[in-house]
Design a protein around this nucleic acid. Sequence first.
DNA 1: GGAACTGTACTCGGATACTATGTGTCCGAGTAGTTCTGG
DNA 2: CCAGAACTACTCGGACACATAGTATCCGAGTACAGTTCC
Lengths: 130, 130
Amino acid sequence: MKYSKATNYALHTMLNLAMSNSSKPIGVQTLAEQQNVSPTYLSKILTKLVKEGMVSSVSGANGGYSLTKGWESISFLDIIFAIEGKSSLFECGLDHGPHCQIQKVMLESEEKMEEELRRQTLAGLVQTSK
Amino acid sequence: MKYSKATNYALHTMLNLAMSNSSKPIGVQTLAEQQNVSPTYLSKILTKLVKEGMVSSVSGANGGYSLTKGWESISFLDIIFAIEGKSSLFECGLDHGPHCQIQKVMLESEEKMEEELRRQTLAGLVQTSK
DNA sequence: GGAACTGTACTCGGATACTATGTGTCCGAGTAGTTCTGG
DNA sequence: CCAGAACTACTCGGACACATAGTATCCGAGTACAGTTCC
């Protein structure tokens, strides 16, 4: 079990967007260069973030991506959920009664991690990265 | 990102072994039937647990698997690490300076989850499952 | 001078290919009890 | 009766096959801006 590289790219891209805070959108090429990813792949990741409403895209010349209003409150968990999906990490597929104790424990531990990720916002990260 | 099915099988098998608490080893066939897995696949999972010293195996007739001494203190994390490996969930492969803030945040959140999983022991689970 | 045309620099999204990993099966080898056989 | 051989029920571990998901590329389409042409 590991986070996908896409999640890593997404987090870094969001940070880059937040740090640059220009009013103009930033092209996918620029963003891709900063991480040594192919632009086309990064654009696929970005469309997921757009669909979640964290990022807006502008087509055409001088186009690119920029953060939407209220980005300061976007948490790590939001970004991770956008890329990895919202389903829980552990699912006991066995049909041995309705309440699987193991499932319960796993879910609780997962919740602890998500709590922490919910506390960490983009804005907070920008603060410490300056 | 998801836990593998193998982890699920491992957790349930450990619970089964702990619940049965017979002095004689239990055959892999019996264990497999309880979860609708193929015996050969389950044996692969069990060998990982054997290598970590949580389970001992007895060959030959009337052979099988049984928990080792001190099993009461085995935690969920121990079992998960045995199957999934001990490496951390997130690794920022980018070479943008020595201390990646994102990596730091991710590691901290992961630590919260592991803390919880370390607290949950097999013995505790048996208690609530009776 | 202004409307239409052209070029350019972008994003968007589907199709496709490659790769890694998880999942599962097969089979030969080794091991330890159990039963059978022969003296 | 008893020692040794044959049998049987297991685990062990490597090799292999398959499915799925992640990673990455390619390309045609759409879009908006800037410059050019032409009346």
